[in-house]
Simulated assay, not measured.
Amino acid sequence: MSFFSKLKESVAKRTESVTQKFVSGLSKTSSNLVGAMGSIFTGRSKIDEDLYEELEEVLIGADVGVPTTMHLVERLRQEVKARKIKEPSELQLVMSELIAELLEDDDEPSLQLNQDGMSIILFVGVNGVGKTTTIGKLAHKLKQEGKKVILAAGDTFRAGAIEQLETWGTRAGVDVIKQQAGSDPAAVIYDAIQAAKARQAEVLLCDTAGRLQNKVNLMEELKKVFRVVQREVPDAPHEVLLVLDATTGQNAMQQAKTFGQAVNVSGIVLTKLDGTAKGGIVIAIRHELDLPVKWIGLGEKADDLQPFDKEQFLHALFQEED
């Protein structure tokens, strides 16, 4: 059975509505990346240096990134030699296999939850990436699963952040612990932990300020929040999710590296993937940062936040081939 046949068979076992969300949300990336690769592979009669150079341009243009692009092209060269491939038209299948190879370790659960008590999840990321919205959507999803959820309005820095989280809390039917704008974020998180313990909440989702990479004092503030969480619940936080905007491309990679130096990021939430043709950033994150992409945003509705599924991702990317 071919790679695409196996992929199609596996995806067929998933919920059709979710599959459609992936296909629709990744249509721009599929056209930009896979469509462009297909044009290269079917538009020439031989495999030569020009082909490899054009492929590099397409991969980098889809935000696969230079290091990951170089890795994929080198692996393609190796496979062409090992398999004695002569026809460029055969290379689309090989590239799909190589991309799948880079994502093969992305089988971690979308959330690491504490099975013996309350789970605390911190969300970090710069302003404008959709962090507060992501928290609201995840609260909605967890509430639908029957979990008791509390939100902590730890972003006391951005005007309107507290009110925005309260709006999402109301929609999801969950409590929001807050203080006044400008309050010490660590104090807000402390209050939220005490409230979550008292109310026997199962999950505490903590918002934090949208820190810019060059604001050292704000990074130090984030570390303080981290220390408070660890002091109050020794095995927490159970997840530190970095929210990145897929439309910002390689800038998102730099943000990931910076936040990774400040706190122990456990996974990535990639928002606005439906709004970009550069979804290759998913592949770059996995290869260059060795961090799992745990959730992706495929639209504006509450259920458009989806756990990352590598097979759905690959199926949506290579839908025309599949």
Rank of each mutant, 00 (worst) to 15 (best):
A256N: 10
V216Q: 12
I162G: 02
L151Q: 01
L317D: 06
A236S: 15
A36C: 00
K147M: 14
V73P: 06
A252C: 13
L222Y: 03
P185A: 10
A262I: 13
T247F: 06
L102M: 10
Q254E: 14
D106N: 14
S5W: 03
E74A: 11
T170G: 07
D116S: 14
L204Q: 09
L111I: 09
K6E: 13
L242R: 12
T258A: 15
R75L: 12
R83Q: 15
H287F: 07
K21C: 00
L76K: 05
K148F: 03
Q254F: 11
L93F: 01
K272Y: 02
G267Q: 08
R75E: 15
M219C: 01
F259H: 10
Q112H: 13
V34W: 05
R77H: 14
E104P: 00
K294G: 02
A187I: 09
A36M: 05
F226M: 10
T19H: 00
K13A: 14
L317P: 04
F123I: 02
A195K: 11
G249V: 11
E87M: 12
V126Q: 02
A236N: 12
V225S: 01
V124A: 14
R211Q: 01
G136S: 08
K141T: 12
K148I: 04
L113K: 11
M70I: 02
G249T: 10
R286C: 01
T134H: 04
A284W: 10
L151G: 04
M70G: 00
S39M: 12
T69Y: 00
E9D: 13
L242Q: 12
R75A: 15
D245H: 11
E321R: 12
S10E: 15
V269P: 05
Y52L: 14
D155M: 11
D322E: 14
T248R: 04
A62Q: 04
K8G: 12
K84R: 15
E321L: 14
V263I: 15
F4C: 00
G130W: 06
A100C: 07
V64T: 11
Q312T: 01
V80D: 05
P234F: 08
V34D: 06
A209Q: 06
D322V: 15
V269N: 02
H71M: 06
F226G: 00
L98R: 01
F318S: 06
